[in-house]
Nucleic acid binder design. Sequence first.
DNA 1: CGACAATGTCGAT
DNA 2: TCGACCTTGTCGC
Length: 311
Amino acid sequence: MPEGHSIHRLARQFSDVFLGQRLAVSSPQGRFGDGAALLDGRVVESASAHGKQLFLDFEGGLVLRVHLGLYGAWDFGGDETFAGASSIGAPRRVGEREIADDGGTRLSAAPPPPRGAVRARLVSDHGWADLRGASTCTVETVAEALAVRDRLGPDPLAGRVPGQGRGRGPGEEKPGDDGEEFARRITRRRTPVARLLMEQDIVAGIGNVYRAELLYRARIDPATPGTDLGADRAAALWRDAAATMSQGVRDGRIVTTDPALWTDGPDTLPAPVEAHYVYRRHGLACRTCGTAVMLAEEAGRKLYWCPRCQS
DNA sequence: CGACAATGTCGAT
DNA sequence: TCGACCTTGTCGC
C-alpha cells in the first residue's frame, strides 16, 4: 500500500542495483509470461517514477510499467556487490508495509524458489527482484508509457530523489517546481480538497495517509472546496508535500509529526504510534488541542481530521 | 484458522 | 456507490 514516496524509493533502488545490467526476466506465476519474454535478456537503461507509477526502461524502447495497487510489493536480494550498490540499504521488501529496513540483505545472487504468486522476476549477475500483488505490470512502448505519465498531475517528488531517473525514460524527472500547475489544477474545482488531493490527475503520488496528514499540517478543513483554497494555501500545500514526502523517501516510512513530539527524542525515527497527527487516530486526542480526532468514510476511503485545528 | 482491513484504482451498476 | 483485484499482517475464537 504504497504512496508516491515508496515508488520513488523503488526507482532509486532499481537505478542503484540494475542500471546497465542485462536481466533475465521471467514470470513464475505465469500471468506476465508474454511481457517477460519480451524483456528477457535486455539491458536496463533507466528507472524512474511519477506519482505511484514505476517505469523501468529497457534497451530497444521497451518499458516495464508497474503500479503496486493496494498490496503490491517488490522483494530484493543479492550478493555483496548488489547490497553495496543500494543507497537505500538493499531492503528485502519495499512497497507494502511501512516497516523499517530489517537489515537482512540476502547475501545470495541466486533467487530463492518463488514463494506465492511471483508475477515478475528480474535476475542480474548480482541479484534479483520479485514482484507480487501488483495491479499493473505491463510492457509498453516509450510512447505508451509517456501517455500514461502525461495523464497524471505534477508530482511533488519530481526532481527531488537523488540518483533516480538517470538516462532518458518515460518517467524522467524534470527539474523545476510544478507548484503553480498544482495550484491551477486544485483551485479550479469546487470538490472538497480532501478528495482532490487523492486524484492523481490533480497531484500525483499522494494517498490516504499523506492527504490526511498534509491537511492537518496545513490546518485546512478537509471539506474546503478547491475553489476556496486560494493561491497561497495551495502553494503552501505543495511545498509541504514536497518536503514531507521527500523525508518519506529518505526514511522509507511516512513520518509527519514534529520531532519535538517524539518521546525518544529527535535523533531517531519515532515509534509508529507517534508518526502521524490524525491518520488512524480516530477517537484519540489531537496532539495539539486534545479534541477527539474525527473519522468519516469518503469515496470508499477513511478520512481523519481534527475538527478544532482544521476549521 | 478464519475474518478483516490496508498507504489503490478500475469498471460495472 | 460497490465489488473485483488477490497479498499479508493482525486480531479474535
